[in-house]
């Protein structure tokens, strides 16, 4: 029940950019929303990058910065709608590079073991004047950015089409395992509305 309410709330939130049927409608997008999206998109990305890069020495870090950058997805959706979203971002690329970022994190952590110290130990690579903590933060930042971005694209994509095609077709196994269960339930209850 709570989920349905939540999903309904989310829909209300997006009604300015969508007609009640939930289908993307280009004419309905307001110029103010688009201007706002244009204005805040570079700001969000820049600030996110700043938080990621300074994660080892100041509050914040890879996770927080990654989420900030991923908010770009939301801004594109708000300003330009679902169709632009699918042409702007390539989900498969994001997904694969996200996996690479995860592997990078573990690999950098394993460097510590290879040089005879502990896992995830922080040391400076002299030739580049680079700490491994910065690299690990970067990996986390990219991973969170790509992960949350993928999640948002999937959720918003389903939000736009939930009335026309049922997202949880019982006959076929959808690619839903990638989405965490929370989103799945939201989608499922969305379907029932």
């Amino acid at each position: 029940m709570a989920n349905q309410a939540k999903a309904a709330k989310k829909k209300d939130h997006f009604t300015p950019t969508q007609n009640p049927g939930g289908k993307p409608h280009k004419k309905a997008l307001g110029i103010i929303v688009r201007f706002g999206a244009n204005l805040f998109l570079p700001l969000a990305c820049t600030f996110g990058g700043y938080v990621v890069l300074h994660g080892d020495s100041s509050p914040g870090g890879g996770f927080q910065g990654g989420v900030l950058i991923a908010s770009a997805v939301l801004l594109v959706f708000l300003g330009y709608g679902t169709q632009k979203l699918s042409t702007t971002f390539k989900t498969s690329f994001l997904h694969n590079t996200e996996t690479v970022a995860e592997l990078m994190y573990i690999a950098i952590g394993l460097i510590g073991i290879l040089v005879g110290l502990n896992f995830a130990v922080n040391f400076v690579i002299d030739t580049f004047h680079l700490e491994t903590a910065v690299l690990m933060n970067g990996a986390v930042g990219y991973h969170v950015m790509a992960g949350i971005g993928c999640l948002l694209i999937m959720m918003l994509g389903l939000l736009g089409t939930s009335e026309s095609t049922a997202p949880t077709n019982p006959g076929e196994k959808t690619k839903m395992a990638e989405i965490t269960e929370a989103e799945r339930k939201e989608v499922g209850s969305d379907d029932e509305l």
Partner: peptide, 13 residues
């Protein structure tokens, strides 16, 4: 997520 993996089963979700 793994419990609901075979989401074509009745009651999986």
């Amino acid at each position: 997520a793994l419990t609901a993996f075979r989401n074509d089963y009745e009651g999986a979700l």
